[in-house]
Amino acid sequence: MGKYRYILFYKPYGVLSQFTDCSRENQRRTLKDYISIPAVYPVGRLDWDSEGLMLLTNHGQLQHRLSDPRFQHPRTYWVQVERIPDAVARQQLQQGIVIENYRTRPAKVHLLDSEPQLPPRDRPIRFRKNVPTAWLEITLTEGKNRQVRRMTAKVGFPTLRLVRVAIAHLRFEGLQPGQWRDLTPDELNPLLKLTMLRQPQN
């Protein structure tokens, strides 16, 4: 076992993407409720009310580089929105949206033909009667605070459910909410290459 650990975790809805909750509520779940490995830290974050893939490591240089906006590694989300976005809205999302004087980077946006196969959320979304919903696949190369939700809201299609399904080439398949596993060498090597790091010696 090497000195570095690289963990993929499927964060459930309603879990903070940190190991401690500094608020006074003291009832919110955190990463420590699922991961008992010491001294690993999340690369980036995922909102409390979002679900899906997180990468955790104790390799500080990798964590720093993946968090650096210059590397622009892709993150892919499946996004359930209220109503069905038209071509104009999708093009706006692709080209970039101005949010509080910041223009988001160009994104890949695809309207899914059908609802993706996902585990049920432990708190179902609230449907509005007679209002249809749709699923988008959105790939970003940045991670501003609540960016996907703010982008879809800006073009008039509020996000109802948000699931991160990929970080670069890493996918969530094979994991259920609350489960984690170590990266395989085949997964790790491209990640180190992406950030121009060498494979650490064991």
Results as ranks from 00 to 15, higher is better:
5 R>S: 12
7 I>S: 07
8 L>H: 03
9 F>E: 07
11 K>F: 13
11 K>H: 10
12 P>A: 07
13 Y>W: 14
14 G>H: 06
15 V>T: 10
17 S>I: 03
22 C>A: 13
22 C>W: 08
24 R>D: 15
24 R>W: 09
25 E>P: 00
25 E>T: 10
25 E>I: 06
28 R>L: 13
29 R>E: 12
32 K>E: 13
36 S>W: 03
38 P>L: 14
39 A>L: 11
39 A>E: 12
39 A>D: 15
41 Y>L: 13
41 Y>Q: 12
43 V>P: 01
43 V>G: 01
45 R>F: 08
46 L>C: 07
48 W>M: 13
49 D>P: 00
51 E>L: 15
52 G>C: 03
52 G>P: 10
52 G>S: 12
57 T>I: 12
59 H>Q: 07
60 G>D: 11
61 Q>G: 01
62 L>N: 05
62 L>M: 14
62 L>K: 04
64 H>L: 13
66 L>R: 10
68 D>R: 12
71 F>Y: 15
71 F>R: 06
72 Q>G: 08
74 P>L: 04
75 R>M: 02
75 R>Y: 00
77 Y>Q: 09
84 I>T: 14
84 I>P: 04
86 D>H: 04
87 A>Q: 13
89 A>K: 14
89 A>P: 03
90 R>Q: 15
90 R>I: 08
93 L>H: 00
95 Q>H: 07
96 G>K: 10
97 I>K: 07
97 I>T: 01
98 V>G: 00
100 E>S: 03
101 N>I: 00
106 P>R: 05
107 A>M: 08
108 K>M: 10
110 H>E: 15
111 L>A: 13
111 L>K: 07
112 L>I: 02
114 S>C: 06
117 Q>L: 13
119 P>A: 14
119 P>F: 03
122 D>C: 08
122 D>N: 10
123 R>Q: 14
124 P>T: 07
126 R>A: 11
130 N>W: 09
130 N>S: 12
131 V>P: 00
132 P>W: 11
133 T>N: 12
134 A>N: 09
137 E>A: 12
138 I>D: 11
138 I>P: 06
139 T>V: 02
141 T>K: 05
143 G>R: 06
146 R>L: 02
146 R>T: 07
147 Q>P: 01
148 V>C: 04
149 R>L: 11
150 R>K: 12
151 M>W: 10
153 A>Q: 14
153 A>C: 05
153 A>D: 15
154 K>W: 04
154 K>N: 07
155 V>G: 04
156 G>S: 09
161 R>E: 06
161 R>N: 13
161 R>T: 08
163 V>L: 07
168 A>P: 04
170 L>P: 09
176 Q>K: 08
177 P>V: 07
177 P>F: 02
178 G>H: 05
178 G>T: 06
179 Q>Y: 01
179 Q>G: 04
180 W>R: 01
181 R>C: 09
182 D>C: 05
184 T>S: 15
186 D>C: 03
186 D>G: 03
187 E>F: 01
188 L>I: 11
190 P>V: 03
195 T>P: 03
198 R>D: 14
198 R>K: 14
201 Q>H: 03
202 N>T: 00
202 N>E: 11
